[in-house]
Write a protein that binds this DNA or RNA. Structure first.
Lengths: 208, 208
DNA sequence: CCGGCGGGTCTACGGTGCAGACTCCGCGGG
DNA sequence: CCCGCGGAGTCTGCACCGTAGACCCGCCGG
C-alpha cells in the first residue's frame, strides 16, 4: 500500500482525540483507537503509515481549528483573536496540545495560521524584514504559555512554592520569601491577556 | 520498599541521558538503561518508583545545570545570562529538553532557577506585584524558544515555506509570497538575542 | 549467632507497534 | 457472463515494553 486512503482519516483522528481526552495521550494506542471504531488495529495502517503519522494527523487537525479573523479588523485585534483562539483550542484539547510543539508542521495547510499572523503584522506596519521573527516570537510565546497552562507547569510551581519547605528555608529563597505567599491559582485568563498586551507593545515599537 | 535508595541515582540519570542522546527519548526504556549499567531492569526500581519518576529525575537534573549568575552583576546582565544558560542546557541535551515542559517541577530545588529570576527582577526595580508574572512570561518564552529550536519547529516551517507548494499557491499565502523566500536556516543565536532584548524592554517598562 | 536490610535477581503478565500474508467484496471491461 | 483487480479489512506473529511479586545473598549491629 503506497498511497494512503483518505476516506475515514478524519473519523480516525476524531476517535483518537476522544480517547486521548478520556484516558490521556500516553494511553493512546493503535489498538484502542481501532477498537473504538470497531476495527482491528491493522486496518488503521491503510490510513496512516504509523502511529507517529497518526499523531501528526492530530496535530494538523488542531491547526485547522484555529480562527481566521476577518481581515477588515484592526491588526492588533486580529492578533489578540489569533492568540486567544490558539489558547482556546489548547484548552479544549489539553491532552494533545503538546503535539503542537513536538510534531513540527507536516502539511502545507499548517502555513495558514502563520500566514494570518504575517498579514496582521504587515498591516500593523511592521517592516518586512522583522515580520518572520516577530511571528516566531509571538507564536512561541503563545504556544509555550498554553502548554504550560494545560500541562500544569504554572500550577506545579505555585503549589511547590506554597508548600511547607523542608529542604530549603527562607534563607535559600529570599525573593520567594519577600514576595510572600502566592495566590492559590494563577488567573491564567487575566495573565495571558496582560502578557499579550506587553508583547503587542513590542510589535507596536517595531511598527514605529 | 518505601524509601528509595539514593546512592546511584545520579549515575542512573547519567546513563539515561546518554541513551536518550544516542537513540532518542522515545527509545529510552528501563531495560536499556539497566543494561548500560550492567544491571537488570528491576534493579532500577530501588532508586526510582517508576519510569515516570526517572523522567522527573532527568528533568530535575537539567534544572541543576542552569547557571547562577553572580549577584553583583547588573540585573539585566543576569537575566541574559540565565536565558542563555537555559538555552545552552537545552542545546546540550536536545533529546530530553521537552521534559522541562511536560514534567512540572517535582523537587524543591526546582524553585532555585525561578528564585534567581525573581531576584534579578526585584533588583531591576520591578514592583513586587509584577514579579511572578514577568518571571512566568520570561521563562515561558525561553522554554518555548529553545524547545522549538531543538524539536525543529522553526526549521520545519521554513523548510515547508521554501518547498514547491502544490496544495496552496501564492493566492492562498499572499503574505508569505510578499516576504519572498526565507533564508535556509534561521540564525537562532541572533534571533534569540534580539527577542530577549525586546522582552527586556517589557521588564524595563515595568520597572519604570 | 541471628535478624534485618540494602543491594540485586528471576519470572511472568498484559500490553505495545507493526511486518507480512491473507480474505472478501464490488465493479468495470472483455 | 466471467475475470481480474484494487481497496478494505483481518489474522498471526515478533520483539519489545513497564512492572508486580517473590526471591537470594552478604553485611552489620545487637
Amino acid at each position: 500500500m503506497r498511497r494512503l486512503k483518505t476516506a475515514r482519516r478524519s473519523e480516525i483522528v476524531g476517535a483518537a482525540l476522544e480517547l486521548a481526552a478520556e484516558r490521556g495521550l500516553p494511553a493512546l494506542s493503535m489498538r484502542c483507537v481501532a477498537a473504538r471504531l470497531g476495527l482491528t488495529p491493522m486496518a488503521l495502517y491503510g490510513y496512516f503509515r504509523s502511529k507517529d503519522d497518526l499523531l501528526d494527523g492530530i496535530a494538523a487537525h488542531l491547526l485547522t481549528l484555529l480562527p481566521a479573523p476577518a481581515s477588515d479588523l484592526d491588526p492588533f485585534t486580529r492578533l489578540r483573536e489569533l492568540a486567544g483562539g490558539a489558547r482556546a483550542v489548547a484548552r479544549e484539547h489539553p491532552a494533545v496540545a503538546g503535539l503542537l510543539f513536538t510534531r513540527p508542521v507536516a502539511s502545507e495547510r499548517s502555513l495558514l495560521p502563520a500566514e494570518r499572523v504575517y498579514r496582521a503584522l504587515l498591516d500593523a506596519g511592521v517592516p518586512e524584514a522583522e515580520v518572520p521573527r516577530l511571528e516566531r516570537l509571538l507564536s512561541t510565546f503563545v504556544l509555550g504559555y498554553v502548554l504550560s497552562e494545560v500541562e500544569g507547569r504554572f500550577a506545579a510551581s505555585t503549589r511547590l512554592a506554597r508548600s511547607r519547605r523542608v529542604e530549603l528555608g527562607p534563607a535559600d529563597l529570599p525573593a520567594h520569601h519577600r514576595l510572600g505567599p502566592l495566590p492559590h491559582h494563577v488567573d491564567c485568563d487575566a495573565e495571558f491577556a496582560e502578557d499579550l498586551e506587553d508583547l503587542l507593545t513590542i510589535v507596536e515599537a517595531a511598527a514605529k
